[in-house]
Amino acid sequence: GSPLAQQIKNIHSFIHQAKAAGRMDEVRTLQENLHQLMHEYFQQ
């Protein structure tokens, strides 16, 4: 897949890990990143 698709997959797993660790501030930051990446992805 594209590097962007790979990045989106990575962030999904980072979010999963951050949630499991209870780091909600990190989850929020990652979700904002994910949102931006998704936006770029669909602009392609």
Rank of each mutant, 00 (worst) to 15 (best):
17 Q>C: 14
4 L>W: 06
5 A>T: 08
19 K>D: 02
6 Q>G: 04
18 A>W: 04
2 S>E: 11
43 Q>R: 13
33 N>V: 15
20 A>V: 09
42 F>L: 09
26 E>D: 07
3 P>H: 12
30 L>F: 04
5 A>E: 11
29 T>A: 13
38 M>P: 00
7 Q>D: 03
40 E>C: 15
29 T>W: 11
19 K>I: 13
23 R>S: 04
43 Q>H: 10
13 S>E: 13
18 A>V: 02
41 Y>E: 02
12 H>I: 15
9 K>L: 09
39 H>I: 13
44 Q>Y: 13
32 E>R: 14
34 L>F: 03
35 H>I: 12
10 N>A: 14
33 N>A: 15
32 E>V: 08
22 G>H: 04
21 A>P: 01
39 H>K: 14
42 F>A: 09
20 A>F: 03
39 H>D: 06
8 I>H: 00
31 Q>V: 11
34 L>I: 03
24 M>Q: 05
16 H>P: 00
38 M>K: 02
5 A>D: 06
11 I>G: 00
19 K>N: 04
8 I>W: 04
7 Q>Y: 07
7 Q>G: 02
19 K>E: 08
27 V>C: 03
15 I>E: 00
25 D>R: 06
37 L>I: 05
1 G>M: 12
1 G>E: 11
18 A>L: 08
39 H>S: 08
27 V>L: 06
44 Q>I: 11
3 P>F: 14
36 Q>E: 07
19 K>W: 14
20 A>E: 09
41 Y>P: 01
7 Q>T: 06
22 G>L: 04
9 K>M: 10
41 Y>S: 03
32 E>Q: 11
9 K>F: 08
5 A>S: 09
20 A>D: 05
20 A>M: 12
8 I>T: 01
40 E>F: 09
3 P>G: 12
22 G>Q: 03
18 A>I: 03
11 I>L: 14
16 H>T: 11
29 T>K: 14
36 Q>S: 08
43 Q>T: 09
30 L>M: 04
42 F>N: 07
23 R>V: 02
27 V>T: 02
37 L>R: 02
5 A>V: 12
6 Q>Y: 05
33 N>Q: 15
2 S>K: 08
14 F>Q: 15
5 A>Q: 09
36 Q>L: 11
9 K>E: 05
24 M>H: 09
22 G>S: 03
38 M>W: 10
44 Q>N: 09
15 I>N: 00
8 I>G: 00
9 K>S: 06
11 I>K: 01
31 Q>F: 12
41 Y>F: 10
40 E>L: 14
19 K>M: 15
8 I>V: 03
23 R>H: 06
28 R>F: 06
1 G>L: 13
16 H>R: 15
37 L>K: 03
27 V>D: 01
31 Q>T: 12
37 L>V: 03
39 H>N: 09
38 M>S: 02
17 Q>M: 11
43 Q>Y: 07
17 Q>S: 08
25 D>P: 02
30 L>A: 04
22 G>M: 04
12 H>A: 08
2 S>M: 11
34 L>E: 00
2 S>R: 06
1 G>V: 12
7 Q>C: 08
36 Q>N: 08
23 R>D: 06
10 N>M: 15
4 L>G: 02
38 M>A: 03
25 D>A: 06
43 Q>N: 10
38 M>F: 07
14 F>S: 10
44 Q>T: 11
41 Y>L: 09
28 R>Q: 07
7 Q>I: 10
28 R>N: 04
30 L>C: 05
21 A>S: 05
43 Q>C: 15
39 H>L: 14
34 L>Y: 03
42 F>C: 09
1 G>C: 10
29 T>M: 13
33 N>M: 15
15 I>L: 07
37 L>W: 02
36 Q>D: 06
17 Q>F: 06
38 M>V: 07
40 E>I: 12
12 H>S: 06
3 P>C: 15
19 K>L: 15
5 A>N: 05
19 K>P: 00
18 A>N: 02
44 Q>D: 07
24 M>N: 05
25 D>E: 10
25 D>I: 04
4 L>T: 03
13 S>I: 14
43 Q>D: 06
20 A>G: 03
23 R>Q: 05
25 D>N: 07
14 F>W: 13
6 Q>N: 06
34 L>M: 04
28 R>W: 07
37 L>Y: 02
2 S>N: 11
7 Q>M: 12
27 V>G: 01
11 I>V: 07
28 R>V: 07
25 D>K: 06
10 N>G: 04
16 H>F: 11
20 A>L: 12
5 A>M: 13
14 F>K: 15
6 Q>W: 07
1 G>N: 12
31 Q>S: 08
7 Q>A: 11
20 A>W: 07
16 H>L: 14
23 R>M: 07
27 V>R: 01
9 K>R: 10
32 E>Y: 12
25 D>F: 06
15 I>F: 02
41 Y>Q: 03
21 A>K: 05
19 K>Y: 13
38 M>N: 01
4 L>Q: 02
6 Q>T: 08
18 A>R: 02
11 I>N: 01
4 L>R: 03
17 Q>N: 07
17 Q>T: 07
44 Q>G: 08
40 E>W: 14
14 F>G: 05
44 Q>H: 10
3 P>E: 13
30 L>V: 01
17 Q>L: 10
31 Q>Y: 15
4 L>P: 02
8 I>N: 00
35 H>G: 04
26 E>N: 03
15 I>A: 01
6 Q>H: 05
33 N>C: 09
16 H>I: 13
25 D>T: 05
1 G>F: 03
18 A>T: 01
25 D>C: 15
24 M>L: 11
27 V>N: 01
19 K>Q: 11
32 E>M: 13
26 E>Q: 08
2 S>D: 10
12 H>L: 15
13 S>T: 11
19 K>C: 13
18 A>Y: 04
22 G>P: 00
2 S>Q: 10
35 H>K: 14
41 Y>K: 03
39 H>M: 14
28 R>I: 08
9 K>Q: 08
11 I>E: 00
1 G>I: 13
44 Q>C: 15
20 A>C: 14
39 H>Q: 12
3 P>K: 13
33 N>S: 13
8 I>Y: 02
30 L>G: 02
4 L>I: 09
10 N>Q: 14
29 T>S: 10
36 Q>H: 08
35 H>D: 08
14 F>P: 00
14 F>M: 15
39 H>G: 04
22 G>C: 07
21 A>Q: 07
